[in-house]
């Protein structure tokens, strides 16, 4: 069953490091959706996630071009992408994927195939910016979340779409 989620109305990460005051981020509790791609775990902001669907519920259509996959909903095509654990785009035909996470930021809507996905509430969470020497022009990871000494890569639909665009598949 398709469950419409809440669209984002306010900043996704309101307490990321403030560059003007250089104040450390406040500790807080945050809801995320955790995606597993191979050995890598990603967090996506809960408010951008429309739904998490088992692949059994998804009728994925492949076009002649293997790189473009979509589902049709209400006569609208929603692009669906698959990444490996290093966020390289891979074929969505691979049947190892168990879930499709649908993301919507109010402007764009896409599906991301993954091995596992689920809601997670992290307490005492701090968001760190990626160190300068790790930033590259094509990364979709801008933040690392630290919660109770666990580290998670954090992304969002905007960064994922930029990555897809750079790969020439938008």
């Amino acid at each position: 069953m398709w469950v419409e989620g809440q669209h984002p109305l306010d900043p996704i990460f309101p307490n990321t490091m403030n560059p003007e005051t250089n104040n450390p981020p406040e500790k807080t509790v945050r809801d995320f959706v955790k995606l597993t791609l191979g050995k890598t775990r990603f967090l996506l902001p809960d408010r951008e996630v429309l739904s998490i669907e088992p692949m059994l519920n998804i009728d994925l259509t492949h076009e002649d071009n293997d790189d473009f996959n979509f589902i049709t909903m209400n006569d609208k095509k929603i692009s669906v992408y698959a990444f490996d654990e290093d966020l390289q785009l891979v074929s969505a035909k691979d049947d190892r994927h168990q879930f499709c996470v649908f993301l919507d930021d109010g402007q764009d809507r896409i599906g991301i195939l993954c091995d596992d996905a689920g809601n997670v509430t992290l307490d005492d969470i701090k968001l760190h910016e990626l160190p300068d020497c790790m930033l590259s022009t094509d990364t979709a990871i801008k933040n690392i979340a630290v919660s109770n000494n666990n580290l998670y890569c954090v992304s969002n639909i905007t960064n994922l779409l930029q990555l897809i665009k750079k790969s020439g598949l938008d």
């Binding site: 050995k39 890598t40 654990e85 290093d86 966020l87 990626l130 160190p131 020497c133 790790m134 930033l135 590259s136 094509d138 990364t139 979709a140 990871i141 690392i144 580290l151 998670y152 890569c153 990555l163």
Partner: peptide, 14 residues
């Protein structure tokens, strides 16, 4: 932890 798409010489954080 590995950071996807980061440089091969600086691919992990701790």
């Amino acid at each position: 932890i590995p950071v996807p798409r980061s440089p091969v010489w600086c691919h992990h954080v701790f």
